[in-house]
Design a protein around this nucleic acid. Structure first.
Lengths: 193, 193, 193, 193
DNA sequence: AATGAATGAGGATTCATTCAT
DNA sequence: GATGAATGAATCCTCATTCAT
């Protein structure tokens, strides 16, 4: 029973299905058929709405990054002071919403794909720049000239826990990872003072 | 003119070609044809020696991990004292031999594949366990009960810099990454004392 | 705002769009979507009016042939004497109305399609018969028994210049083609006398 | 039972099958599957040898043109004097080898395709130039300044009979067509003198 | 030891056509 | 009257893998 205004619904379903399949398989070796099936429609319809496979992937990636950015922003407005804001940034990545099997795995896959695809890289660069700038902004008052290095270290550490979470079996323990990152942050601040 | 004892030579050539291609492409989307061509032989021969494609990948992965393990061991025998040994472990990963475009990229790709393939995971687990055990062994005298967490943090940090290196454009700066890891190590040790 | 009596308008728009697209592409590899878009409507509506794609093509072909027949008739009523009537017939095909890029190209395409489609052939046969009969009627008083052969030759010559016009780049030169045909006609008449 | 040196055999079989299928269908709407089946092999093998569909078409076209050029050349060496040489040129196109159902139909199809495909056009241009130059060379001594126009007329006439042959049902009558072209030639020469 | 020959299976994409609104 | 929604069928092309030589 076809209805009007299906486009956004179908697109969202496809994006969700894409994240699910990519996360499940752990690579981009996912057929449009698998995605479409999971989204409950024919491959033809998937193509109708997205044109080509890489556009579906791109939309999924964009979705993940947007969700993440929104979550960071939401936490940041509530946080007072650099330390609290740094914690907000760190915790966002490891919050249950973000830090769940499929999403983490899909994230990692897209992350890797950025090596190849120009469009994927563009998206990733935006993410990386924003993360770095966020960290830097809060680290500056705490560490001064040492802030850039600390920011780099923190960013790498976050990515490191992410990749480990993606690879570990079972549900990843976000709290533990966040705790490690935060205590490293404390150590870095302590050492810098 | 076919010669005797070609097997090890052909296998090595294929492994090398695999790392090269996987590194170049940045994913496992590499055909047996590409690998065989780079290795200077027919696809049929590649199959003859490895049976199936995933065996080629596995051999390449094993090769990278073995090289890495050897390099660690070589550095460890020269190092005296926990700090020096930790530095040896860290520096190995970022040494020019290991930390070059193709290899890092291939490494990352295999790393991700571990999520899917049972055999790949087995290999990766060995690597992770060994790294963790190495770190732990040296951190214990310095940090006591805090060692496990520190080991986990360091391992994640190393992986994090690796992934960032794989994704960054141009030749990765191993020294800088090593320096960041080591100064984080110092901070952790300092904070733990 | 849907209006009454849209049918003829829509059909005409589709026919025109079909000739345009077929002429542009130079083959029948034209989708209903392209035609409908050029005609400013949805593919569903195109199907609504024509039932199936080949019916659209057929209608377009019929349109071209009808236009041509009308043009011939219009010129014939003004011409006096066999020579003048032959010239009228020849010139019609190369007149600006008929002899323009899109139309010539579409004509040729349909012409070729007659080889395959029964319906297309039926239309083409009508055209060919009429052309031949027209030519024959005027050639008879001039050439007597030699008329049938001359008619065949003239018909082939006209088609030949058509196909060349369709394939040549840029706007075809109808006057030059007509001149060649007419001087050949003169030569044939001269030779027959 | 795979043998060596199959490539030229397979390629020839595919070219022949392509001409057969294109001729049969009367358009380029021929699938690789049909061609491969007629040639007695899998589609994969067809792709293996030609890379892509249009390369198969191009090879078939090239084959037809080469055969034709060879046939012209063979007849020309035996002919003495302009008239005999003109007759040789004309008769070649309508000789049984060239002027048979499939080939004529395929020829026409490729001819039309030249409108679209750059590569096809390139081939056709060579053919047209060569035909024109051949005709011109022999017409010059007979007609002087009138030669270019006559050459154009003859070329168009040949194409015209070709297209008519392609569209007529049953086996085309090459002799009759040749006779018409030649008597037109005589008329043109007679008229020019 | 080595390879050209060959294919089955699979995947992205397109498109005519139908249907409910 | 008009269209967005939806799909099945078809088509090109790729690739891992096998086999005879």
């Amino acid at each position: 029973m076809p209805k009007l205004g299906m486009e956004p619904i179908r697109r969202a379903a496809l994006v969700k299905a894409t994240i699910g399949e990519v996360g499940r398989v752990g690579s981009l070796d996912v057929t449009v058929g698998q995605i479409a099936k999971r989204a409950g429609m024919s491959t033809a319809l998937a193509h109708h709405y997205f044109g080509a496979k890489d556009q579906i992937f791109l939309a999924a990636m964009r979705h993940i990054l947007t969700e993440y950015a929104d979550a960071v922003r939401a936490r940041l407005v509530l946080a007072r002071g650099p330390r609290a804001r740094l914690e907000a940034i760190v915790r966002t990545g490891f919050a249950p919403d973000q830090f769940q099997g499929d999403v983490v795995s899909a994230w990692l896959t897209f992350y890797v794909q950025a090596h190849t695809s120009v469009n994927a890289r563009r998206l990733m660069t935006v993410y990386q720049r924003r993360l770095r700038s966020n960290l830097l902004h809060e680290l500056r008052p705490l560490l001064g000239a040492g802030a850039p290095e600390a920011a780099e270290t923190l960013a790498a550490l976050i990515d490191g826990f992410y990749i480990r979470a993606a690879l570990g079996q079972g549900a990843p323990d976000g709290d533990a990872s966040a705790a490690r990152v935060l205590s490293t942050l404390e150590a870095l601040i302590g050492g810098g003072q």
